[in-house]
Design a protein around this nucleic acid. Structure first.
Lengths: 175, 175
DNA sequence: AGTCCATGGTTGTAGGTACAACTAATGGCG
DNA sequence: CGCCATTAGTTGTACCTACAACCATGGACT
């Protein structure tokens, strides 16, 4: 079942090479744009997830799922944000094992201050070069790839990642 | 001229969120598929670049450009591959500062052994879910994003990354 | 030749991430 | 009740990468 023995065709090679290049360049580029706010892109994503969450708090495991991070990684990042006073760990009443990460007021403030910077960076590096149709196309393509990456469908529960069924997302032909 | 003050629109948010998720998941997923060959995805990319190069060798800085890596990073990875016997550092005759990384026979062998594994992984995680048109679309989108990421155009010189004008992936003059 | 600057690479250091091993609490089931 | 498998999180360890500082060479210009 291994080794299809067939080499990739040229258009495939091109797409993969470019995708790979983007994978290599985009994350560090994004991080650099946010460096001025003393937040990493991942930390921002984390604050964003909490901001959108009910009661501005989320269980660590839920937060890990939403941000596509492993639990160890999330644990340490939350520790870091806690040290900066942007987040608080509070025990979960219903489950003695679980903890909630709660956005503090300072965390809210930091998030709101960083949001426009992040939005501008994303526009400058990704969106501004694309037409509306291309943006939709990008959303559709990434969804398809994500579906294969995460067959368990455990991770992609966030609204923006879900299937295009829900109203807020642009419709496209269902597979 | 900072802070556009305008929030991202919903389709933009969706595309960016999915792209971000992919950025988080794809690299580690690819690495895991290649773990059995005791090569990282980046090391494979590096061997691939050397394989395609004229005389199976490339100057370190050229190699860094092709693989979208910083020079320090490349230097260490080459050291690692050298230790494994897959690559050799040889001084460049024309330029006393420069070094060539040369693919050894063992390196060729390792590359050829890993190539089908890598191809299968790429197919399984990316290509198999997409139609030919979508693959072309992906290539076009990533090209547009790369163009904005690398305005200096220093990095994206590789044939597969260049503008869609040229069809083939020719080698270019060795050092 | 001599000076200055740019280029090619290497290494010190710091920070981030994955994996595995670990603790602790939950929930089922006899 | 008491045992066992599962789940939530934390931490030890190892690796990787970025940035900055560094050394050496090449090239231009006087």
């Amino acid at each position: 079942m291994t080794s299809t023995e067939t080499a990739l065709r040229q258009p495939e090679r091109v797409a993969v090479a470019r995708l790979h290049a983007m994978l290599e360049l985009l994350p560090t580029a994004l991080d650099k744009q946010l460096a001025g706010e003393s937040l990493t892109a991942f930390e921002f994503t984390l604050l964003e997830a909490l901001w959108e969450a009910d009661g501005r708090r989320l269980r660590l495991s839920a937060l890990a799922s939403r941000t596509n991070a492993t639990l160890p990684r999330l644990s340490r990042v939350v520790t870091g944000l806690e040290r900066k006073g942007l987040v608080e760990r509070t025990a979960c009443p219903e489950d003695g094992r679980a903890f909630n990460a709660t956005l503090t007021d300072a965390g809210m403030e930091a998030f709101l201050a960083t949001r426009p910077v992040h939005a501008d960076a994303v526009r400058a590096m990704i969106l501004d070069g694309l037409t509306d149709e291309e943006i939709d196309s990008l959303a559709a393509l990434t969804l398809k790839i994500l579906a294969r990456l995460d067959p368990d469908r455990r991770l992609t529960i966030t609204a923006c990642l879900a299937d295009p069924v829900d109203a807020s997302c642009p419709a496209d032909p269902a597979p």
